[in-house]
Design a protein around this nucleic acid. Structure first.
Length: 342
DNA sequence: CACGAGGA
DNA sequence: TCCTCGTGG
């Protein structure tokens, strides 16, 4: 899994309304995976159109984006580009986990264990190129800008936040903090509903803000030390981390020894870890050139959105139309309240 | 995950 | 108006 910084960060609860008129850069693969994992039918099957093509990602993106836009939040989606070569181990690990989940899912389905089927289905999602292209398409139709990063999406998202093109990153993972993002928002949903992994139970979770400065200050670390700490716990580029070292332990070690090279008890493991290269990935990642950026927040194209979702993907016309009209009303209200100032 | 109908 | 629950595609 991703880097587990949770025990070391202070999370500040925020309200959706705090983000009014702010730009946030969303880790596209992260949210699309969530939608594919959770937006499923009774036996764990993906929602599809009548051709059998998956539509769960489109449902999630359409409804959530409109909700967030109604709250005045400006969205930019960041897609992953080519993964770094050190990520191949992690990619292989995920592929195996997916295969394993798929086998368990099929078996549960075969044996009629519906709850198990639904549970295992969550881990089977494949982000196909079709799903990626369709996701980019619905974003364009909704007037939401998207960027395909040269490498990791998280690093480009972090860069936008560092350069204050965006107020904050949005992701469930903590990697963007290691990439130097000024802020990270987790649990950015409107309904506040989130599934507990492995259980068919939902609890209320509110959005939370994590601040880079606060993470460094509260743990008394520099950026370089935070990266070393991440490497100890395990990043996408060394997913296993170091044996017997979790977040708390890693923090103690870094606070005491300041850097990886000075921790005696990991010397052997360290010699088998490309830690200098991993440091470089986080400190000097390959990112987009801000000058090349063309971020235009446009109006939703009502006709084309309905054509795509309803005609091509068999969404309910009534629901889609209602939602677009809801967005129209919010935009109208906003421009009226703005008029009062002038 | 999120909608929306229906009951409290 | 809030919450639960079945359904969406």
């Amino acid at each position: 899994m991703g880097l587990n910084l949770k025990p070391l960060v202070t999370s500040n609860p925020i309200k959706i309304s705090d983000l009014n008129r702010k730009v946030v850069s969303i880790d596209a693969f992260n949210v699309i995976y969530q939608f594919l994992a959770t937006i499923r039918g009774p036996t764990g099957e993906l929602l599809t159109n009548n051709q059998g093509d998956p539509t769960s990602h489109l449902s999630g993106l359409f409804y959530r984006n409109i909700n967030l836009m109604c709250d005045g939040i400006q969205l930019i989606y960041i897609f992953d580009g080519r993964p770094h070569k050190l990520k191949t181990g992690e990619i292989e690990r995920r592929r195996k986990a997916k295969q394993d989940a798929t086998e368990k899912y099929n078996l549960a389905l075969q044996e009629g264990r519906i709850d198990d089927a639904k549970k295992f289905s969550q881990g089977t999602s494949m982000l196909t190129s079709n799903i990626v292209e369709e996701s980019k398409n619905i974003l364009s139709l909704m007037g939401i800008p998207h960027i395909t990063a040269p490498s990791e999406g998280e690093s480009t998202a972090a860069y936008l936040s560092k350069q204050e093109v965006a107020y904050s990153c949005v992701s469930q993972d903590y990697d963007s903090i290691l990439f130097g993002a000024k802020r990270l928002i987790r649990n950015l949903t409107v309904s506040g509903k989130r599934k507990i992994p492995n259980r068919n139970v939902y609890i209320d979770i509110e959005p939370e803000l994590i601040e880079y400065d606060q993470v460094l200050k509260s743990n008394n670390l520099t950026h370089e030390q935070l990266i070393d700490l991440g490497i100890l716990i395990g990043t996408d580029f060394n997913p296993d981390g170091f044996s017997g070292i979790g977040p708390k332990n890693a923090l103690k070690l870094i606070q005491k020894h300041k850097k990886l090279e000075d921790i005696d008890k990991i010397r052997d493991e360290l010699s088998n870890t490309p830690y200098q290269e991993i440091r470089e990935i986080f400190l000097n990642p390959e990112v987009i050139d801000i000058g090349d950026l063309n971020l235009q927040f446009k109006d939703l194209d009502k006709e084309k959105t309905i054509k795509f979702l309803c005609d091509e993907k068999n969404f309910s016309y009534e629901r889609v139309n209602n939602y677009i009209e809801k967005l129209d009303k919010h935009i109208l209200k906003k421009s009226q309240s703005l008029d009062k100032w002038f």
